[in-house]
Design a protein around this nucleic acid. Sequence first.
DNA 1: TTATCCACAGCAAACATTTGCGAAAACAAT
DNA 2: ATTGTTTTCGCAAATGTTTGCTGTGGATAA
Lengths: 347, 347
Amino acid sequence: MFAVDNLFLQINSTTMKQKATLKNLSKTLNISISTVSRALKNHPDISDETKKKVKELAALMDYEPNTYAINLRTNKSNILGVIVPEISNFFYHSFIAAIEEEARRLNYMLLILQSANNAETELENLKLCRMNRVAGVFVALTSHTKEIKPFLQLEETGTPIIFCDKVPDFEACNKICSADAEATIISANAILKSNKRKVLAVLGNIDLSITKKREQVFKETLENSNEQINLEITHANSSEEATHKTLQYLSNNMQRPEVIFCMSDEILTGVMKAIYQTELKVPKDISVIAISNGFLPTLFSPEITHVVTSGIDLGKLAFKRMMDYQSGKTFAQELTIRARFVEGGSL
Amino acid sequence: MFAVDNLFLQINSTTMKQKATLKNLSKTLNISISTVSRALKNHPDISDETKKKVKELAALMDYEPNTYAINLRTNKSNILGVIVPEISNFFYHSFIAAIEEEARRLNYMLLILQSANNAETELENLKLCRMNRVAGVFVALTSHTKEIKPFLQLEETGTPIIFCDKVPDFEACNKICSADAEATIISANAILKSNKRKVLAVLGNIDLSITKKREQVFKETLENSNEQINLEITHANSSEEATHKTLQYLSNNMQRPEVIFCMSDEILTGVMKAIYQTELKVPKDISVIAISNGFLPTLFSPEITHVVTSGIDLGKLAFKRMMDYQSGKTFAQELTIRARFVEGGSL
DNA sequence: TTATCCACAGCAAACATTTGCGAAAACAAT
DNA sequence: ATTGTTTTCGCAAATGTTTGCTGTGGATAA
């Protein structure tokens, strides 16, 4: 055992330059590697005296465990994969932010990958996750993904897969979705309650299952009411297209809708541009309601009445499910986050 | 050497269950591990015949190299750290998306960490990067970061650090910034050219260096003109505060500004809400110009005239700098991305 | 024949860590 | 003195890869 100054001297002369590894620590202390390892993690086998010595030197030498060695040895990691169609998106960036926050609290890290809405890239991303032996992966599928076997295959080898937002249709797997149907029903009911009878629904890409689902539920809810509703439906693949399509409906004064339902934030931006261009006033001349992530509708004035399906809530729930999975609850489960009605002034 | 069917038989019986590692490949082929390793990477020492055999089996067994082992052995990784104050932010989410795109092309992966605008968390994030032996880190500092030594220390050990957007003031380090001064000058000049003389500048947190810089340059540019400008300046720490402050200026008809300069997207949203609430018309009653990431101003009608400092461009440039660094150009360098004027209808 | 060279492949160390097992010392109980 | 127990620590194998060095045949040249 060294006196402190001796220890310091020794370190300065021989050790300071070396990388701080267990081996080097053990060498300077004349102690075995395993003892150092155990001391550092407070293993009961090790005496307090030894622990103190080891920890002091470790601090002095800025020892930081080598993640790669640990992961190699233990064959797991604290890295979670996140595969999304794109980061820079109303919904996903808050989804990712939420997961990151939770992850940090529990000492996980995130490998974030965008698929550029491309099934092939998505598969590559999955491969990267596999190669990095991630502890689990969150995935929001692209709209073109047909084949989810590779995902399920990875799950079979013990890596939890949590499908989020855009999830496969039939398979028995873990899914976290926003309450699509609920959000749509709330929107439709709000319209019914407002007594507007000429309704325009602007929906997204017609090939997406989410579009189909919302369209169907929206239609049904209106039809099942006792009201005589005049419903027009149109589809747009982009914000610009939404503007264009909406303009067509607004330009004809005879059939101008009284209220517009926007399926998503992207659609909403397009629709609002169209409304601005026609100089119609919301809600005097025309009403608007949207399903949204919550932020965008607050930018307008009056704020747009909307139904929130929050990316943040989804991220949090997904992470919770992941942790449950990690602690053994591996059975397939489908969870949804509730939709919330937010009164703006636009209806 | 096996005939194909023999090979397949053997694999089915003994190998299929095993993990696909070099060792297992070598065992089933009765070949040394090193030969397998070299064959897989087309080392000239290995005969074509052997290579073929190895590659076929590797494909059959879904061999995927173990990243941890590789990283441990080579003591480096293809993971880049990205530390930002927050992901869910007008600027940073596109910044991150841009880096991710570039990274993917060059086979890097991203470890994304938010500091929650908290210097301590930022330090933890840096530590995580260190522990994971990242190949480099992009960092946008929090507004509270005083101490950048830890960053520079990491750089000394060979890990490139690229400061982005929010960068340290004086140190000799690699910085990628948007052309703040230029963007501000362009804005100021646009105002001068518009012949509006009563100007309100709504700026962000007064403690941020970016705020100080923009304020100073904005003032100077207006003062250095020959015009008689009536400039009011106010500061807001949030979108809500911007609304509040702006309303104060708008409510008094006597001193109501003719044009409002918004320093950022966040400020812009606040200002626009104030304008909506007062029912003033843009640009008839009041003009608006902003410095922005480019997306938000297009949501209004008329679109807001703005000067773009693009997160995407910044991300791309930062990544390029990182690659240059990796290939030897380690000297400190400060790069800026140009600002671009975008005509809306709001001025 | 002998020396030289080449193509091909294996040996073994190294990377940093974890962990089951065993062992030595100290101490207590019989 | 013998046996048993506890405390404390070290040995060595194992994780999957890379890579410098070595070795073996065979071909070519002297």
